[in-house]
Design a binder for these strands. Structure first.
Lengths: 98, 98
DNA sequence: CCTTTATGGATAAAACTTTTAATCATGGGA
DNA sequence: TCCCATGATTAAAAGTTTTATCCATAAAGG
């Protein structure tokens, strides 16, 4: 389990790629073939990197790879999910086994 | 990029856990707190391991960890997405940069 | 100043996904 | 034969993702 709240991949995308290369969100969105809104939401942590978006990013920028983008999204999602795990208590299965 | 079509995590779950421990799908579903339908679909590769399901599996069985389940799902999804990448052509961004 | 451009927010709509429930047919054991 | 587990079907509810349009704001350049 990750120890600390992992960064949303949108923050990485924004800082590491868009800002550091001096690109505009509008331009990158149209280059990726998605709406400005979709990209904007991801960058502001209100949207997720889907498998398709991960492949689009890889095709456009090379690195991080699609796999890497999805791992970042996973780490983020998992953290969020674990925080609310009280809402779906599941006990170890071992207990019931012979 | 993975070289070969990765297994759907549902197959792993079915073979490695449910079958090898001699559990029934009905029983595991109710233990996990999801419907039999939901689990059945995953086991037959018609459903996905969501972050919440990954945590449920980890809480019930310990290993594989939630992170591991999500990686398996990622590998599968990514493969599927790459197969249809013709449907969303994206060119390298380098070309347009100064 | 004034104009253009980039951006995030709000709103609404469409498409898709996930989950559930109920029901049915099949096939294996006891 | 009877019961149980299973996958399939159908239908419904809930949630997510993406898009489009419009607006307010702010920054950049003339």
């Amino acid at each position: 389990m990750a120890m600390f709240n992992p960064a949303h991949p949108g923050e990485i995308l924004k800082e590491l790629i868009i800002e550091s290369l001096g690109l505009t969100i509008t331009d990158v969105a149209s280059h990726l073939g998605v709406s400005r809104k979709t990209l904007s939401k991801i960058l502001n942590t209100h949207g997720s990197i889907t498998p398709e978006m991960a492949v689009r990013l890889e095709l456009a920028f090379g690195k991080p790879t699609a796999d890497h983008w999805l791992r970042m999204q996973n780490a983020f999602d998992l953290w969020q999910t674990r925080q609310q795990k009280a809402s779906f208590q599941v006990s170890p299965y071992n207990v019931q086994m012979a």
